[in-house]
Amino acid sequence: MELLTPGTGLIIWQTFVFVLLVFLLAKVAWKPILSALKERETSIQESLDTAEKARQEIAVLKADNENLLKQAREERDKMLRDARDASNRMKEEAQLAAKKSAEKIIEDARIAIGIEKQAALKEIKIQVANFSLEIAEKLLRENLSNDKAQKELVQRYITDLKVN
C-alpha cells in the first residue's frame, strides 16, 4: 500500500533538513538557552547558598556579640566591685591615718601640757617662794621689833623645820 511505503525523496529531504535543523537550532537556540538556564540555575543556587551562609554568619556574630556583651557586663561589674573595694579600703585607711594622727596630736598636746604644767608649777613655786620671802620679810620687819615675838617666831620655825 502506497501509504506505508516511505518515499525516497522525502527521506533524503527529511534527513538533510532535520540534520541541518539540529545544527542550526543548536547554534541559535539550544546553546544560548541551555547555557542561560544553567547559568540562572547556578546563580539561584549560589544566591540561596550565600543567603544560608549569611544567615549562619549572622547567627555566629549574634552569639559573639552576646558573648562580648556578657563579658563586658562582667568586666563592668568587676570594675565596679573593684572600685567600691578600693574606695572602701581608702576610706578605711584614711580613717585609720586620721585616727592615728589625731592620737598623735593628742599625745603631743598631752606631753606639751605636761611640760607646760611642770614649768608653770615651777614658776608658781618660785613665785610662792618669793611671795613668802616678801611676806616673811615684811612680817619680820614688823614682828622683830620685840624680842618676844622674835623668839616665838624662831621657835615656830624650828618646829616647822623639824616637821619638814
Binding site: V17, F18, L21, V28, A29, W30, P32, A36
Partner: peptide
C-alpha cells in the same frame, strides 16, 4: 511542509534564543 516547519521552528526558537541573550 517540512521546509515550512523548519522555517517556523528556526524563527520561533531563534527568537527564544535571542530573548536569553
Amino acid at each position: 511542509m517540512l521546509l515550512i516547519n523548519a522555517t517556523v521552528l528556526l524563527l520561533v526558537l531563534a527568537a527564544v534564543g535571542r530573548g536569553y541573550k
